[in-house]
Design a protein around this nucleic acid. Structure first.
Lengths: 329, 329
DNA sequence: CTGAAAGCGCTTACAG
DNA sequence: CTGAAAGCGCTTACAG
C-alpha cells in the first residue's frame, strides 16, 4: 500500500489540497474545525508529507551530505557523531557516504549528494581531486573540508595542523633519546603529507636527516606486517616508531608483541588520535589527541554560518592537538 | 548560483527538455549529434539531475534509511559499514540517523525517513515502541530490525540470539569456577532483557539463583563507577563480572585497575562484541563475538529481497555468536 | 475561510 | 528523431 498523499487526506475530508496543506502547516487562515478534522485524518492515515515534493518547491532539503573515508575509523565516527549532534539541533539531517580512500568513489559520492540537492557538504577529501572541487564550485553549494585539506582550492577547512602533529610526535621521541625513528605513514591524503613534513622538521631540529628505509606509506587496507618487517630488517633497526594513527598503532602493537618485542623497551611507539581505548592498551599508548569532537563541532558551526549567509573570505579553523604521554614511549 | 536544471541545458542546446532528458539518459531514440551536444553542455554546466524531481516521478529514491543508537558504538559502526557496502553495490545510498537510545528521537528519525520516502529502513529499536511500528506498518515500507528485536510486531529480524549470548558468557565464568558473578547490564533494549535471561539460565543450570545486588542496569550514558562501587561493597563481593558489551567492559577495566584490582585474579571479566581493540587490552579481554559485519550483511540481503518482492512470511535470521577466551577470565 | 491554478524539475506516453 | 502535454506531491499567491 503506497503511503498516503495530501490528496488522500484532502479527499477524505472533502476539502481541497490547498486547505489540507494549510491545516497541516498550522496556518492561521483555516477554520479551527477544518484544521482539527484534517489533522485527525492525517494521523489516521499515517500521513507524512513527501519531502521531495516539498523540497522541489522550497529548494532546500534540510539535509547535509557528509563524505568521510569510512566510519569504521573511530576518528571519523566520533567526528561525524559530533557533527550530527550539532546539525540536528538546527533541524538538519545527515546523509553519510564513505569514500573508502578511493577518489573515484569519492567523486561518485559528491555527485550523488549534489543530485539529492543537499543544502551543504562536509568532506574529508581522499586526495587532491580537481574534478570534485570543480563540481562543488560549479554547483555553488556551501561546503567545508574536514581533517584533510585540498591543495588546489582555497576552501574552508576545519582540522588539525598536521605538520605540527607530526612534529610534536617525533619531537617527543627525540626528547626521550631516540635517534632512529621510523615513520609508518598513511598514503595520499594531505594529512599524510603534512605529518611527514612535521616528522622531517623535528628530525632537522636535531640535525638529523631522513632515512628512507625508515619510512613506509601504507596503502588503504594494507596490513602493517610488511612495513614492520622491513623496518626490523634494517641494520641498525629503528628504536622508535611513529604511527600515522592509533588504528595503525593497534595492529603494530599486536605484531611487535607477537614477535617478542617489548614496548617501549625494544621499540617505543607514538601515534595520533587518542581513541578512547588507547589508555587501556598494553601498554597504554602515547598519542596526540586531535580532538575529533571539536573538529566535528567546528565544522558544523562553520557550515551553518555559510548556510545562513555566504562568508566573505575562506576560513581555516585549526583545532590544536595535544600530546598525551603514556607508557608506550 | 543555483544548480543548472534540465531546462538550462535544453535551452542552451536549442532543444526541448524532453529531448535533453532522452539524450542524458542515453535513450536510443535521439540522434547521435544531439546526444553529444546535450551531454557536452551538461558537463560544461556541471549539470546533475535533481533526484527529488526524478523520485517524484519514479516513486523510488534508491535510498535506505538506517537508525541505530549511535555510530560512536564500534558495534554499530561496523554493522552500518557492512550494510552500506552491500547496499551500495545495488545502487542504494544510506541515510543514517542516531536515536541516542531515546525513543522520542527514534520516532522522529523514522518519521523523517518516511518523509524522505526512503525505499526501505533498517532499524535497531531502542525499545518496544508501538508508535514506531504503527508508522512503519501504515506506510507499508519494507523494513528489517537489526541487533534488537521488537516484541509487539512480528517483524523481520537479523541479529544474535541474545539469550544464548548471555548464557554462554555466564557459563564460561561458571566453568572457570566462579559462583558469585555480577552482571553489569544495559537498559531498555531487547538485547539487555535477553542477555539477562541467558545469565539467569546459566546460573540455574548450576542451581544458583540471582542475587539482585549483583545486577545493575546502566542507563544510556551512565558511567560505570556507581555500579562497580555497589558491586564491590557487597559482602561477599562478586569474583567475576559479565559486562553487557566491550564498550562497558573498557571503562570497567580502567576503574578496576585504578582501584588496584588485578584482572582476572581479583575480578574476572567477560563481555560481548569482540571489538577490534579487545585483543590488545591489558589484559586481553574474553568476549563473545557477535559478528557484527555478518549481521549488517545479512540485514542488507534480507532488505534487498524485500525490495525486490514482498516476502511470504516474516524471517528471523540468527547470526551465531562465538566465545573468544582470552586473559581477562 | 476556501478553492482553482500555476509551478518546483523531471520523465514518458502520445503525436507528428 | 523531436516537441507539447500531463503528472509525480506539494505550496503559495490570487481570487472569491
Amino acid at each position: 500500500m503506497a503511503p498516503a498523499t495530501l490528496r488522500d487526506v484532502a479527499r477524505r475530508c472533502g476539502v481541497s489540497t490547498a486547505t489540507a496543506s494549510r491545516a497541516l502547516n498550522n496556518r492561521h487562515d483555516v477554520s479551527e474545525a477544518t484544521r482539527q478534522r484534517v489533522q485527525e485524518t492525517a494521523t489516521l492515515l499515517g500521513y507524512v508529507p513527501n519531502t521531495m515534493a516539498q523540497g522541489l518547491w522550497s529548494g532546500c532539503t534540510k539535509t547535509i551530505g557528509v563524505v568521510v573515508t569510512t566510519i569504521l575509523s573511530p576518528f571519523y565516527a566520533a567526528m561525524v557523531d559530533s557533527l550530527e549532534t550539532q546539525l540536528r539541533q538546527e533541524g538538519y539531517n545527515i546523509v553519510l557516504c564513505s569514500s573508502l580512500e578511493d577518489p573515484a568513489i569519492e567523486l561518485q559520492a559528491v555527485k550523488t549528494l549534489l543530485q539529492q540537492r543537499v543544502d551543504g557538504i562536509v568532506l574529508a577529501p581522499v586526495a587532491d581531486q580537481p574534478e570534485v572541487e570543480e563540481f562543488l564550485e560549479k554547483n555553488g553549494i556551501p561546503y567545508v573540508l574536514v581533517a584533510r585539506s585540498a591543495l588546489h582550492v582555497d576552501a574552508d577547512f576545519v582540522g588539525s595542523d598536521d605538520r605540527e602533529v607530526g612534529r610534536v610526535a617525533t619531537a617527543h621521541l627525540l626528547e626521550k633519546g631516540h635517534r632512529r625513528i621510523a615513520f609508518l605513514n598513511s598514503k595520499q591524503s594531505s594529512s599524510a603529507k603534512d605529518r611527514f613534513a612535521g616528522y622531517r622538521l623535528a628530525l632537522e631540529e636535531y640535525s638529523l636527516s631522513i632515512n628512507p628505509d625508515y619510512v613506509w606509506s601504507l596503502d588503504p587496507g594494507e596490513p602493517v606486517e610488511g612495513a614492520l618487517r622491513s623496518f626490523l630488517r634494517q641494520d641498525p633497526p629503528p628504536t622508535a616508531l611513529f604511527c600515522f594513527c592509533d588504528e595503525i598503532a593497534l595492529p603494530t602493537m599486536e605484531f611487535l608483541k607477537e614477535q617478542g618485542y617489548r614496548i617501549p623497551d625494544d621499540m617505543a611507539l607514538v601515534s595520533v588520535d587518542n581513541l578512547h581505548y588507547t589508555s587501556q592498551l598494553n601498554p597504554a599508548l602515547t598519542t596526540v589527541d586531535t580532538h575529533k569532537e571539536v573538529i566535528g563541532e567546528q565544522a558544523a558551526r562553520l557550515l551553518l554560518a555559510k548556510l545562513h549567509g555566504p562568508l566573505r573570505a575562506s576560513r581555516k579553523v585549526n583545532v590544536p592537538a595535544t600530546l598525551i604521554v603514556r607508557h608506550s614511549s
